[in-house]
Deep mutational scan, measured.
Amino acid sequence: MASQGTKRSYEQMETDGERQNATEIRASVGKMIDGIGRFYIQMCTELKLSDYEGRLIQNSLTIERMVLSAFDERRNKYLEEHPSAGKDPKKTGGPIYKRVDRKWMRELVLYDKEEIRRIWRQANNGDDATAGLTHMMIWHSNLNDTTYQRTRALVRTGMDPRMCSLMQGSTLPRRSGAAGAAVKGVGTMVMELIRMIKRGINDRNFWRGENGRKTRSAYERMCNILKGKFQTAAQRAMMDQVRESRNPGNAEIEDLIFLARSALILRGSVAHKSCLPACVYGPAVASGYDFEKEGYSLVGIDPFKLLQNSQVYSLIRPNENPAHKSQLVWMACNSAAFEDLRVLSFIRGTKVSPRGKLSTRGVQIASNENMDAMESSTLELRSRYWAIRTRSGGNTNQQRASAGQISVQPAFSVQRNLPFDKPTIMAAFTGNTEGRTSDMRAEIIRMMEGAKPEEMSFQGRGVFELSDERAANPIVPSFDMSNEGSYFFGDNAEEYDN
């Protein structure tokens, strides 16, 4: 993207840094990872977990959730003011799984939030270390993106479920800051804005008074975040219109849905970061690795190297396929839920299948599930090659597409044709070009129609051997075009429920 120079890199967003050079960025990201790792080690000690239990991804998720809940100030305040039966607002906890007599047992633990905050700050040299908290939120978000298709949420806001490739980060909490905003897809931002506008339509006082002023500035800020994701002048001009509207209503909703559809071809720039579970960072720190000293990046080879040398386990339900569970977590670790499966298959070195073909449910185990038949197995999170994460949407291309997802959002900077089903997408653009945004709409449609099938995206960008740390010898991959490109292809993934 041309304006790259004016933006802070995501590592800076990730670490609240002012302008830093590459070495400083690597050190501050490393410091953040160190903090998460030290916190995780301490929690495993508190909970008396064995090494194996500490490497269980379900335990990692519970521990991450506990610290996120302990620092969720708004919710904590709300819980104190609106006490609900049987919930102690000062405590947080969740299921911890232990191996007892050759069987997995679930144990519900409860801790004072104050105590968890103390352990977290102690692991982070006394700081609140917001960057580390956001990092864990993005890992949870990436896992949700890989596990669930947001059909219901899309339909509720009037969008087409086939636009799911635009929904990265749709389950990120509001408090995820600049680093969170960077990884949100165009569809996620559109959905947040539509929800806001709908509230304004239904509630006369939404934009009024002292609160209304705050609401208005939040609305304009979200519009600017979305505008910054678009790469064409016409899309940005249309966002200006939406932002400046005196009284946002149905016309703005129409414009936003139009823009979301246009992003299936004229893709937005959305950041991709490899955020790993805390149970990967903990053992690495415990083994003596100093992330701050060595430096770390979320968008280069580092996460690949770390996963190459990590042992992570997962509980497996009786009829689940461990290899499929591994694929789910591998995609989440690489922030690749909406990437082209052919690119992923090449990088991973084994075939990556669409969601609907995987015999696996989510990673988390519900409290009512029976533990008797639970097994555990090693997650295979290694890769054959590594590639640089991208934040450009890439230019655009036609490809055989599917009944489910009709476009992709690249996660890796790797040369390819970008699949999208042009006739299906263009069919949504018939007729409606009147109104105050008509010239911009016409211009956007013209650009979409001009998108050429034979153009290559990320020209000359390749993948790298894991021994090639400096990215000196790019390998331009070859793809098996007979395979499906979309992950949520004609899909039956479970729906995400809060």
Rank of each mutant, 00 (worst) to 15 (best):
L276C: 13
Q399I: 04
N142R: 05
S274T: 15
K48M: 14
K7A: 00
G249F: 04
L266S: 07
D72M: 12
A260K: 03
M66E: 07
E454M: 08
R65P: 11
D372C: 10
K7L: 00
D372A: 09
I347F: 13
G300I: 08
S438M: 11
N368P: 10
W330L: 05
G228E: 14
A284S: 03
R106L: 11
E115G: 04
V476P: 12
C275E: 04
L49C: 09
N370E: 07
G86D: 00
Y10D: 07
R436Q: 04
M136P: 02
D127H: 12
S245N: 03
E320P: 02
P303F: 03
R152F: 09
C223G: 08
H324L: 01
E11W: 13
I138C: 05
R236C: 07
I406Q: 11
D240R: 04
I63D: 03
V285I: 11
T130L: 12
H272L: 05
I225D: 07
D127W: 12
T45A: 08
R102W: 15
Y289A: 13
N309G: 14
M167I: 11
N205D: 07
R75K: 15
A179L: 10
V363I: 15
G394W: 12
Q42G: 12
A181K: 09
V343R: 02
P283Q: 15
D439A: 00
I41L: 12
L79K: 06
M105N: 13
F230H: 09
T151M: 08
A284Q: 06
G177E: 12
G86S: 13
R470S: 11
A442Y: 02
Y281N: 07
R382K: 12
N76I: 14
P173D: 06
R117M: 15
P173K: 14
L133K: 11
G212T: 04
N247Q: 06
S367R: 08
D72N: 07
G450H: 11
H324R: 05
M159L: 15
A263R: 01
S377A: 12
P173E: 09
K293F: 02
S84E: 01
G200T: 13
G54P: 12
S482P: 00
T92M: 11
E244K: 10
I265R: 00
Y52L: 01
V67P: 04
Y148G: 03
S217T: 15
T134S: 14
Q231M: 13
E220F: 09
A278V: 14
M238E: 08
N144C: 11
M167K: 02
A218E: 04
